[in-house]
């Protein structure tokens, strides 16, 4: 397979350490893209901007940006003012701190990139080995294409990866939440639940999962393209009761025992 093109080049920096790297997207999406169409003539629609007072169309290049300050007021920000706020271009990926991998909550991870060596291959692999040896992840900050990023520098299958992390305001703070309450669970029920979970315990192998829905959507599209008919059915949600939970637990375990002894 042909090598992917690097998106960006930078230098990992911490203490006296420096490693030149190239950045590659680790994600390759296969989403089925739909277009919005005009119902009557099946032509694609496009977006247009109009003056909300006069209804006249306005070209994108003639538009300015404004920041809403109150419910009914906005402040126009000139292009030059916006440019002045943009972070300064730099090639540095500043690793400010190394943390235990468990310190980074799942909710912060956003999008993954691979880092590849740019020049000195041995320094690159030495850093990967050092991170693995210490079982640490680096917390890095950098500016790429006029945007500030925070990311986690970690090792993936022996290679360096940089995963963009979300900013504080993008992750809802769970400390404000309280767990659902109810009558205390019985020891017996918890024990049954644990048995059930252990019976279903195993290794996670992402390769075992395939996007089957995507295949079905493509089948639907192909069927319709040929002029075929498709069936449409509706869904209704269901409810549970306390007894139903206990009975279902017992029945699940009984079912599994039967399977094993069979």
């Amino acid at each position: 397979m042909a090598a992917a093109r690097a998106m960006w080049k930078g230098t990992l920096k911490f203490g006296k350490s420096k490693v030149n790297v190239k950045l590659y997207s680790a994600v390759k999406e296969h989403t089925i893209h739909f277009r919005l169409l005009h119902k009557t003539d099946k032509q694609p629609v496009k977006q247009q901007m109009i003056d909300s007072d006069t209804g006249d169309p306005v070209e994108y290049k003639d538009a300015q940006k404004a920041f809403p300050v109150q419910r009914n007021r906005m402040v126009v920000l000139e292009k030059e003012e916006l440019e002045k706020l943009e972070p300064k271009d730099s090639r540095d990926i500043e690793v400010t701190r190394f943390v235990d991998p468990t310190d980074i909550d799942h909710r912060w991870y956003e999008r993954a990139y691979y880092l590849g060596p740019d020049g000195d291959t041995s320094a690159y692999f030495a850093l990967a080995e050092a991170l693995e040896k210490k079982n640490k992840e680096g917390v890095a900050r950098w500016v790429m294409r006029k945007k500030d990023y925070v990311g986690a520098l970690r090792v993936h299958e022996g290679y360096l990866a940089l995963i963009v992390l979300r900013y504080a305001e993008e992750v809802i703070d769970a400390s404000a939440l309280t767990a659902p309450e109810g009558r205390p669970l019985q020891k017996k029920e918890i024990a049954m639940g644990e048995q059930l979970v252990s019976a279903l315990a195993g290794k996670f192998d992402p390769a075992e999962y395939r996007d089957e829905y995507r295949d079905r959507v493509m089948d639907l599209i192909n069927t319709k393209a040929r002029g075929g008919k498709v069936k449409v059915t509706k869904f209704r949600p269901k409810k549970t009761s306390d007894d139903a939970v206990t009975n279902a637990l017992a029945a699940s375990l009984a079912g599994m025992r039967k399977k094993k002894s069979a």
Binding site: A2, A4, S25, A26, V27, H30, A112, P206
Partner: peptide, 12 residues
């Protein structure tokens, strides 16, 4: 899904 995540080999 696994096919949406490149492998180090895919990236070269």
């Amino acid at each position: 899904f696994d096919d949406e995540v490149r492998k180090p080999d895919d990236v070269g």
